[in-house]
């Protein structure tokens, strides 16, 4: 298995390299540069700024310089947040986004999974219909609607929870963002679980288990759910990568200093290094989570082998 993991990680290197290369050159196609303001700069000042940030060199040289520093783990200085390097920005914001994302993921898995199983067991009954109705709502109402409504009710009207801010990661500050982030995932997980659970409950091995007279719990959780969870796992891989790398909407509405906002801020401010940094981070997360999904698959599904 270690061999498999290693080979997967090694094969990720050319992928990453390709992603870095493509985004590096694509980004430079956008008109305007990081130092373009409404008020233009003196030529000499611009020249010095370009020199400081290596923008005076040819694009190829800049590309090589960038590759070299990325290889040594240095994402360079931020063009926009000029008091910080990209590493400093990420060191500070990524843990926050991951904490939020993981909490939302855990919540989605627990609640969504539970709802899905319940719906499947009561297929075509009232419970099933209401769970599916709620799930459909959860997917269709965007989080930029859910978030303001939740804050208006819980924060402004009742004053139970803070409307915004991170408060150093205090529990009360996390409730609303985590719930908002988790809602659509709850819905998806519930639907996926329900679908595959219904199928699993009708499968031969579950029927056999029932025939053996195993308890309801063992049949549902050990035998049916184990197979039924597979589509959820493959969905959660990319979903987790997206959740853990922050959400620009949630972070902006709740005023949370996560990494999600840097995607938009980097692009709008032509902060080249910030954009590259976020691209690399997302790429790494996607690669790692796809690997984790594959490993989980092998653990859950006896039919899958590493070779």
């Amino acid at each position: 298995m270690l061999r498999y993991v290693l080979s997967r990680l090694l094969s990720a290197i050319p992928t990453l390299f390709l992603i870095i290369t493509i985004s590096f050159f694509l980004m430079r196609v956008a008109p305007g540069g990081p130092f373009d303001l409404e008020r233009p700069l003196e030529a000499k000042v611009m020249e010095n700024l370009n020199k400081i940030y290596n923008l005076d060199k040819s694009l190829w040289e800049q590309y090589l310089i960038y590759l070299k520093s990325v290889l040594s783990g240095d994402f360079g200085p931020s063009f926009f947040f000029r008091d910080f390097s990209i590493n400093e920005l990420f060191a500070q914001s990524l843990p926050i986004s991951m904490q939020l994302g993981l909490s939302a993921l855990a919540l989605a898995l627990a609640v969504g999974g539970f709802l899905g199983v319940v719906a499947a067991l009561r297929q075509n009954k009232g419970v099933d219909y209401s769970v599916m109705a709620v799930a459909t709502l959860g997917v269709t109402i965007p989080n930029f609607v859910v978030a303001p409504i939740l804050t208006l009710i819980m924060g402004v009207h009742y004053g139970w929870l803070p409307v915004g801010g991170w408060g150093g990661g205090a529990f009360v500050n996390m409730v609303l963002p985590v719930v908002t982030l988790a809602l659509p995932q709850v819905a998806v997980v519930a639907r996926l679980t329900r679908g595959s659970m219904i199928e699993a409950l009708r499968s031969n091995h579950v029927r056999t288990a029932r025939a053996y007279g195993l308890s309801g719990y063992t049949v549902v959780v050990v035998h049916a759910l184990r197979g039924a969870i597979l589509p959820v796992v493959s969905y959660l891989g990319p979903a987790a990568a997206a959740l853990l790398t922050g959400s620009v909407v949630i972070e902006t509405i709740f005023g949370i200093p996560g990494i999600g906002r840097y995607f938009v801020q980097g692009a709008l401010n032509r902060d080249y290094t910030l954009v590259m940094g976020t691209v690399v981070v997302v790429a790494c997360f996607v690669i790692i989570f796809n690997l984790i999904v594959d490993l989980l698959y092998a653990m859950l599904d006896p039919r899958v082998r590493f070779d």
């Binding site: 804050t151 409307v163 915004g164 902006t252 005023g255």
Partner: peptide
């Protein structure tokens, strides 16, 4: 000093006394 790029969110934080 809070960066209040989302003016709607800032209004709610103002209403809540934050």
């Amino acid at each position: 000093f809070y960066p209040t790029e989302d003016r709607g969110a800032a209004l709610r934080r103002f209403q809540a006394g934050e």
